[in-house]
Write a protein that binds this DNA or RNA. Sequence first.
DNA 1: AGTACCACCTGACGGC
DNA 2: TGCCGTCAGGTGGTAC
Length: 262
Amino acid sequence: MPELPDVEIYKQYFDATSLHKTIDRVRVNNARVLREVTAAELSRSLKGHTFRSTRRHGKYLLIEVDSGSWLILHFGMTGYLKYFKEMADELEHVRVLWSFTNGFHLAFVCQRMLGEVGLTEDAEGFIKAKNLGPDAAALNLADFKEIVRGKRGAIKSFLMNQKYLAGVGNVYSDEILFQSGIHPQAKVNELTEAQIKKVYQNMLKVFDVAVKSRADPGQFPDDFLLPQRHKEGRCPRFHGPLEHRKVSGRTAYFCPHCQTGD
DNA sequence: AGTACCACCTGACGGC
DNA sequence: TGCCGTCAGGTGGTAC
């Protein structure tokens, strides 16, 4: 479930392992994950170059090559990065592998192949073309209120819509709404100003806590929903059973006692 | 504008 | 044992 906090951790991992190392070889095991680029083009653009910097926009990781182009990674549902030295590790589901001249390798691992690897000359242009809203973690309250204005649907669907704000997915939208005491099916246009502010503040709080916890639910605070987000889960505050139902085709988990506004 | 539903994709799991 | 349906959830497309 790589959402904004998970991708932020991947960014930190990439920065710590793969920046400024000369790329010796690019191996594409499954061209299906490539977007608007062929394996040959990818190899030609990266071989002999280094990665200069990274930025994250929503769930996308954009990596600047020293040539000025950008490698784009999206992790789908099951994607992650793995940096290692021994090829004998026999890592499964490696779709693309970058080998550096220092003998280390960076793998784009993606079991369900819903992830994407792309290349662009223009990072801003890519974000525009993808129709992505502003990064959810870099949004101020005034802009958040502006985006909310005129929307009518369920708050959970709103938060997950990457066109409005980029980075929130199914799992973290549940946490944000739990922290805010708001039902996932509450209508955006029926929320008070105070509730909208609360959602915004909790969104930033949840991101902050999640990144500090290395996006590992096992390390989340006791009053967080995520570790309880399963069929037998109980509300960490009220201790009653959690409810789950489909909201815009996604499974929403919530506490029917603590979260109101249905 | 919003929602419902489908497809992509793989592996885990429960039922029989 | 092994087959089958269902589910997980990010994205994108279509129909209403």
